[in-house]
C-alpha cells in the first residue's frame, strides 16, 4: 500500500472535526446541513481507506449505501428547511427552541 492508512484516518479526523465544529457553532441551518455532509464524507474516506488496507471491496460497497442515505437525508433535510422557513421565516437554528418538554 503506497499511502499509509494513518493518512486516510488523519484526513478523515480533520474533516470530521471541522464538520462537527460547523454543526455546533453555525447558526445558519444550511451551513449545518453542509457540515453534516462533511462529516459523512469523512466517514467515506475512512471506509475507502480500510477497503484498500484489507484488500476487499466491502468498504467501497458500504460507501455506496452511505451515499444513498446521504441523498435521502439531504432531500428530507431540505424539505424540512423549506417547511421551517415557510412557518417561521428564519433559518437561524437557535431560534428554534421548542425541543424541551
Amino acid at each position: 500500500m503506497v499511502i499509509p492508512i494513518e493518512w486516510y484516518l488523519v484526513l478523515s479526523a480533520f474533516l470530521f472535526a471541522i464538520g462537527a465544529a460547523g454543526v455546533l457553532m453555525r447558526r445558519n441551518l444550511f451551513i449545518v446541513l453542509f457540515s453534516i455532509e462533511l462529516m459523512m464524507n469523512a466517514v467515506n474516506i475512512n471506509l475507502v481507506g480500510f477497503s484498500r488496507l484489507h484488500e476487499n471491496l466491502i468498504g467501497q460497497n458500504f460507501v455506496l449505501f452511505t451515499m444513498t442515505v446521504a441523498a435521502a437525508e439531504a432531500a428530507i433535510g431540505l424539505a424540512i428547511v423549506t417547511a421551517l422557513y415557510r412557518n417561521r421565516r428564519t433559518l437561524m437554528v437557535d431560534m428554534f427552541d421548542v425541543m424541551k418538554g
Binding site: F96, D97, M99
Partner: peptide
C-alpha cells in the same frame, strides 16, 4: 440545561 436548542444538546453530546 434544557434550552430547547438542538445545538446545545449536541455540544453536551460531544
Amino acid at each position: 440545561f434544557q434550552t430547547g436548542r438542538v445545538q446545545n444538546y449536541a455540544v453536551v453530546m460531544f
